[in-house]
Design a protein around this nucleic acid. Structure first.
Lengths: 279, 279
DNA sequence: AATGTTTACGCATAGCGTAAGCATG
DNA sequence: CATGCTTACGCTATGCGTAAACATT
């Protein structure tokens, strides 16, 4: 099994369109089509049901997609970890503004550990943290649940209630507390963390958001209403935005994650510093 | 990161000799040498310290070797699992004669589980079981400790005392029990499972052994003395071989292992059948 | 008819082998 | 001085692009 055909396969499986997948890969459609056919021949399994206007994964293709992502991540990880082994330094991936002030404490606590090595923080975008760890670009990451745990171990760093971010003029902005149902969000009564996450991802994708200040700007303009961990609200006050507790929203769970097979003392020390020796 | 240079790298890292590695890969030495240099350039890291007569891994190379094995196993696994997804069937890897009669019970118990699918047993050689699971050629395996747990989850199936296999004429053959120290094996006083395992591997490699009957034949001839789980001795009596309990030997631990990320109902059912609902 | 996958054909280049160079034990 | 890694050079074959055919909506 070679890596290139697998990369091609993943592109097609994600786009479900040979032309777009080829563009993404920087090649033309014909060699891509042939590569997939060759892969199917090698495996002795049909990977896509295709008509001229539709492409869909077969059961074998679905299995291969899941396994290929794991394998390609592991391949990337091999390269990145070997490269970074030249001058060992810990990298912690963090989404900007997500720690709500905990990051400083974690880094200070870590620096006091005898197993500490130099550490750097890698800021990244929404939902990239876990992937950076899987691909070996970071040694650990701070991530809010829910996320894909594949290949990762995790410890809880903080659990805290959510607040709604509302424009100051909003009817609910002066309330002591609000219920999720009152916010007019597309949720059924007891909202799950997974539903909330899908909603947030939807916002981020629709508006092309890159950081928290963009969200708050949109809230201020009355363009959207969203939920945030209370510590984030406290840390980023903004004149035009009011934060109101939402007791029935699922709590925000912040976790530190690291590669499952890691036996690094330095990573273990960082986890201890972040999770507060909860072991 | 492409897979072929990594395969080449692993061959060199394992052989610590470009010529032998090239033979093993079925290519000649020059392209191998170039491939490694290209890989080093791509990574920006020296992987081997080489003089004309010696090749040694650098720290970066050591990291890459470990990571490359994981990645290449995952790559193999992607192919095998996709291929096998065409007609789903569970494969259990077992070393011939290692189950001591437990295998039948496990398979029968599994067949009674509502989540059961067709199952096949894949017989394999010494120390191959875990690797077969990692590479996706099997869905689970029965393995004696110790083995490399990388990427695998495990449950204990059986723990049992060891017996020494001795030729009937041996001075200790008529004893009720013997101590490890009396057997004249190259161990210090409290023998660890790891030491015992290294010793067994040594025997297997030196004599080119492929199954239990070869070992027993050598014991019968007085060529060697070894330790076995008691159930194996009971199951394979042999006129010229006496089995004597060795109370101070580490117990034999048989485990069932499966891929860490597996969420298969069928695998879970097999584990239940093997581990006896110990959850 | 228009969109999107596939086949046909010609070309560039990645990767291999042979032969010779060179450093080290 | 012999073993074994490396450089030099020429070739094969894998894999890409363009053009055109074909099938489906």
């Amino acid at each position: 099994m070679e890596s290139r055909p697998l990369r091609y396969f993943v592109a097609v499986a994600e786009e479900l369109n040979f032309t777009r997948a080829a563009e993404r890969l920087g090649i033309s459609a014909p060699p891509l089509s042939r590569a997939i056919r060759a892969l199917e021949a090698e495996l002795g399994a049909v990977l896509f049901e295709r008509t001229t206007h539709s492409v869909a994964l077969t059961p074998a293709g679905t299995v291969l997609l899941e396994q290929a992502r794991i394998a390609l991540d592991a391949l990337d990880a091999a390269g990145h970890r070997a490269r970074r082994a030249v001058e060992p330094k810990l990298v912690l991936a963090v989404k900007a503004d997500s720690g709500g002030g905990l990051l400083e404490g974690i880094l200070a606590g870590y620096a006091a550990d005898p197993a500490a090595v130099p550490i750097g923080v890698r800021l990244c975008g929404w939902g990239e943290q876990a992937s950076l760890v899987r691909r070996g670009e970071a040694d650990a990451a701070l991530v809010h649940e829910p996320f894909d745990h594949t290949g990762l171990d995790a410890e809880t760093v903080a659990v805290e209630p959510c607040v709604a971010a509302l424009p100051v003029g909003h009817p609910l902005a002066a309330r002591e507390a609000v219920a999720v149902a009152e916010l007019g969000l597309p949720f059924s009564a007891p909202v799950s963390a997974a539903e909330l996450h899908r909603f947030q991802v939807g916002i981020v994708e629709r508006h092309g958001i890159r950081d928290l200040s963009q969200i708050l700007a949109l809230v201020e303009l009355g363009e959207l209403v969203t939920l945030l961990p209370v510590s984030v609200g406290e840390r980023y006050p903004r004149p035009g935005v009011a934060y109101v507790p939402v007791p029935d929203a699922p709590p925000a769970v912040l976790r530190i994650v690291w590669p499952r097979e890691s036996r690094s003392r330095a990573v273990a020390a960082l986890v201890r510093a972040a999770a507060g020796r909860r072991d």
